[in-house]
Simulated scan of single mutants.
Amino acid sequence: MKEGRSLRGLATELERQLASKKDMIVPVMKMHVSTDAAGQCALVVDEQDSEHAYPVTDFALRQIADKHAIPYAYFERMRLEQPVLFDQNVNTWLHANASVNRLVRTLDGKARAFLTDRYRRIDNWDLANYILPILSRLPGARFESVELTESRMFLKVVTSNVSCEVAPGDVIQAGVIVSNSEIGHGKLRVEPLIYRLVCRNGMIVADRAMRKTHLGRKLISDEDNVVVFQDDTLKAEDHALFLKTRDMVESAVSEVTFRLISAKMQKTMGIKLLGDPVKSVEVLANRFAFNDDESGGVLRHLIEEGDLSGFGLLNAVTGYSQDIADYERATDFEEFGGHILNFEPVDWKAIVMPA
């Protein structure tokens, strides 16, 4: 499993971000984009005291393009090559519907998210403060990996009290991953996690997941002014949501869930790869959009392990995740392992004997 930061490091960064972030409901007529000759784009917001310019992150730029149906390749070409044209285009579409309000989320003085006014804020600070004590009280719990990237928070916990041997000497343990995005890069998710001791691989099993879309009531706004949100705006709704999150954590690490998943893993041991393993990996690469380096990495793990079975292929994918520098992409590969576990016979047929 990909190593992240320490719990103390996570808490320190969450506290720092809490003091540095600001959320605003902004009428579109109270903002515009302004781009310099180098293509650096800022979102200029007319707040009650004066105009404030917030440099726009790459992720928020994508959201601005998406909200105004501007093809991203053209959007970026304008921004980098014709910034005056870029500003004219974006501001024209931005102001086309004067009654629209947007939720703008900022951090460290930068616009990090450009969202609808129905976006449901689920903040990492609030979620962590509620869920970390619950995770720490799981029997035999250990925080195997936690991380806070630019777009998501990840909490991966394993419990040594729920375990079994999938093969002699090959022990797996139950766990859970809680992940969330404050900026619209995915849902709040609670998913079972399987940890294999012999190689420290993690596998996320998404078919039994709770995923909460960040969509709620239309946020209260002032048609003529920018509204800055206070932290207690959605506390009651947060409490109800976090109670459900707690229940899903308990379900994810239950004996029933763990036994169902471990039985599926044991069945993959009987699936033998009869064709060229290179082509078997190519089938996975096409399905999950691996790049060439990723395909080569998975193949290397498969050959080094010497287990040409469905179980070996699953572990080659999750094992390769530890080689990936980017934490979010590494987590993707832990999820791919869970998807492979849930393959139907027709899916395995294409892998076992690829054309």
Results as ranks from 00 to 15, higher is better:
V100P: 01
G109F: 04
A37I: 10
A38L: 11
Q88Y: 15
R120F: 15
I25W: 04
V100Y: 02
K22C: 13
A69E: 02
G109V: 04
A42T: 09
H68N: 06
S20K: 13
Y130K: 10
M78R: 10
P83M: 05
R77M: 13
K110T: 14
M24D: 00
V90H: 04
A65Q: 01
D46C: 00
D126W: 08
T57I: 11
W93N: 03
F114H: 03
G39T: 06
N124P: 15
Y74H: 07
A73Q: 08
L80S: 14
Y54S: 08
A128C: 14
K30Q: 14
N97D: 15
V104E: 00
I64R: 01
Y74V: 15
A42M: 04
Y119M: 01
N101M: 07
D87Q: 12
Q82D: 11
T116I: 05
A42N: 09
V33C: 08
S20L: 14
V56S: 05
A73P: 02
R118N: 13
F114R: 00
I64W: 01
T35Y: 08
N129A: 08
T57S: 14
T106H: 10
R77N: 15
G109C: 04
Q48K: 04
N89M: 15
R120T: 11
Q40T: 06
H68W: 04
F59W: 12
Q88V: 08
A98W: 06
R118V: 11
C41E: 14
I70T: 10
D117T: 10
D126Y: 14
L132V: 11
R112N: 14
S34Q: 12
A73E: 05
A128D: 12
V33Y: 03
V90D: 02
L103R: 00
W93I: 02
Y74I: 12
K22M: 14
E15G: 05
A65F: 01
D36F: 02
I131L: 11
R120V: 09
D58L: 06
W93P: 00
V45W: 00
R118F: 06
L107M: 07
V56H: 04
K21A: 10
A128G: 12
V44G: 03
A96L: 06
A37N: 07
D58I: 04
K30R: 15
N124V: 13
D87S: 13
R79K: 10
L14A: 10
L107C: 11
D46H: 02
Y54N: 03
